[in-house]
Design a protein around this nucleic acid. Structure first.
Length: 507
RNA sequence: CGGGAUGUAGCGCAGUCCGGUUAGCGCGCUCGGUUCGGGACCGAGAAGUCGGAGGUUCAAAUCCUCUCAUCCCGACCA
């Protein structure tokens, strides 16, 4: 048996992917489960990632003409009831507020009192409450388009939760827009999906597939739902963002009407689109390895960790003074539009312990600095996208440029790796038996990582979609925008089909 | 909401079957010292309503009843 290098995270991805995911989060100190059932506490290192996501996306929303606003957390039940499909989709996972105060129960405890005349629903999404405002704001075609975004928390009462991927309360942004014509609304829907795709690629180093959801998978109340889908390292798909063309459904239920160019009143056309803290889950599962979190520089809370190495007090003072100078090198530096943060880790721990600490946190670059380096006016640099012991000496005179270039390289490497991985695990399948084999684990008891994205023909019948879901837990992730028109036969029933769709197991 | 399991120190566990001194162990934490470029070591120390309530008993972490919570597997979902 060959000697295996010890990994920082146990189990490895191969051994137990779900547990590996939890351990990466724990070891990087991103978040933890709260005492409140199904809710998470996002810790500073994890929250900083969310803040970076917010900053980048918010800039992109501004550039596309959107403005931020804030709407109530509570939605009156009657508002919610107005859109039938919407109700059906969310009814089973709503937290409902029915009382307005607490009273002494006489036993040192409290009892609820003050029943509300109308229950309030804690928003699972805000179409209805925002629609009520929009109905007042929109009177004329001159008021359109109305382009609003909200950063908020929402609640969906989930039975089973996983940190970042599915929690009862989570953070997101929801864009809500109103347009004069169906074409304008559709254009907005597509435009914002492209914004998401660009953000995922450029900041999260996450290649995504843009496409349309099937009837069964679309947002309750939408006419069309579009999505970006990414492949995780266990070859499952993760929906990383959605954009909905709502037609006139919500305009009708909320009464969003305007006087058009011909003087007639008509219902407006609306859209909504969102991404959530789930993106952090995507980030983790796309790039991290068996040594822990790996963060693309453009979204990392911090970019460089300086790790001083010394033996005694004498060395300590000279090494720390030198490290301080190195830290100053990056004090006002930018990597593209990202401000560089450089940590000096002078905690009283062994060098390797501090080293592994930062590896597990996913910091892109580590600089080990000891007496030997100072003599040659250099530092030992290690990159998170390479092996932990793969370090090289870099002269201080060109350290700044070298680090900046390395950050760019790391960002590119993560994107390319994720893209190659997805391509290597995407197959065209036209044979029903091969399809079933592709999505069936060899080891049924503890399934190994298997499957991937299957590009296969689908006739368009919901029954076929349902059957495959029931048999394999595989669903149609999307009908890709770039799917080519090609004759084929449905992977399930064999009836004619005009294009391939993407099948995968999903989160 | 159905099936299975588990609640003992901050975390991970042993002890429960077969009741019996002061409830242990590893990690972490605190203090002191030696260390520090592949995950250090030595010494000392703090820390527990044994998930909760009731019962059986001279005696309960251990047996009985009820209850609460969490995790896993399903069904449902961003």
């Amino acid at each position: 048996m060959s000697k295996q290098e010890k990994t920082a995270i146990e189990p490895t991805r191969e051994q137990n992917y779900a547990e590996w995911y939890q351990q990466v989060i724990k070891n990087a100190d991103l978040a933890e489960n709260s005492d409140v059932r199904g809710c998470m506490v996002i810790k500073p290192w994890g929250y900083a990632i969310w803040e970076n996501i917010q900053r980048a996306l918010d800039t992109m929303f501004r550039e596309t003409g959107h403005r931020n606003a804030y709407f109530p957390l509570f939605i009156p039940k009657s508002y919610f009831e107005k859109e039938a499909e919407h109700v059906e989709g969310f009814a089973k996972e709503c937290a409902v507020v029915t009382h307005s105060r607490l009273e002494d129960d006489g036993n040192g405890g409290l009892m609820v009192a003050g029943e509300l005349t109308e229950p309030l629903i804690v928003r699972p999404t805000s179409e209805t409450i925002i629609g009520a405002s929009f109905a007042k704001w929109v009177n004329s075609y001159r008021d359109l388009p109305l382009l609003i975004n909200q950063w908020a928390n929402i609640v969906r009462w989930e039975m089973r939760t996983r940190l970042f991927l599915r929690t009862a309360e989570f953070l997101w942004q929801e864009g809500h827009t109103v347009h004069e014509t169906a074409e304008d609304a559709m254009e907005e829907t597509r435009k914002m999906l492209e914004v998401y795709a660009r953000f995922a690629a450029e900041y999260l180093a996450l290649p995504v597939i843009m496409g349309e959801k099937t009837e069964g998978e679309k947002f309750p109340g939408a006419v069309n739902t579009y999505c970006i889908e990414a492949m995780m390292q266990d070859k499952k798909a993760l929906q990383a963002g959605t954009s909905h063309f709502l037609g006139q459904n919500f305009a009708k239920s909320s009464g969003i009407k305007f006087q058009g160019r011909n003087g007639e009143f008509e219902f407006a056309w609306t859209t909504s689109w969102g991404v959530s803290t789930r993106l952090i889950g995507a980030l983790i599962m796309a790039h991290s390895d068996d040594n822990g979190l790996a963060l693309p520089p453009k979204i990392a809370p911090s970019h460089i960790a300086i790790i001083p190495i010394y033996r005694d007090e004498n060395e300590k003072s000279s090494v720390l003074a030198y490290c301080d100078r190195i830290q100053q090198l990056f004090a006002k530096e930018y990597f593209e539009d990202i401000k560089i943060y450089c940590e000096l880790d002078d905690r009283d721990l062994t060098g390797s312990e501090r080293n592994w600490y930062w590896i597990k946190k996913g910091i892109p670059i580590r600089l080990e600095i000891g007496p030997r380096d100072i003599e040659s006016d250099a530092v030992m640099m290690a990159r998170r996208d390479k092996e932990p012991r793969d370090k090289q000496s870099v002269g201080v005179n060109n350290l700044r440029d070298y680090v900046l270039q390395s950050l760019k390289d790391i960002q590119d490497t993560y994107y390319q790796r994720a893209l190659s991985f997805r391509e290597a695990n995407t197959v065209q399948v036209d044979d029903n038996r091969k399809f079933y084999k592709f999505f069936t684990a060899k080891n049924a008891e503890t399934p190994e990582i298997h499957g991937g994205f299957a590009e296969s023909h689908w006739c368009g019948d919901v029954a076929c979609e349902e059957k495959i879901k029931e048999d394999l837990k595989v669903t149609i992730r999307c009908i890709p925008f770039d799917a080519v028109e090609v004759e084929g036969r449905c992977i399930c029933c064999g009836k004619p089909s005009r294009r391939r769709v993407i099948f995968a197991k999903s989160y």
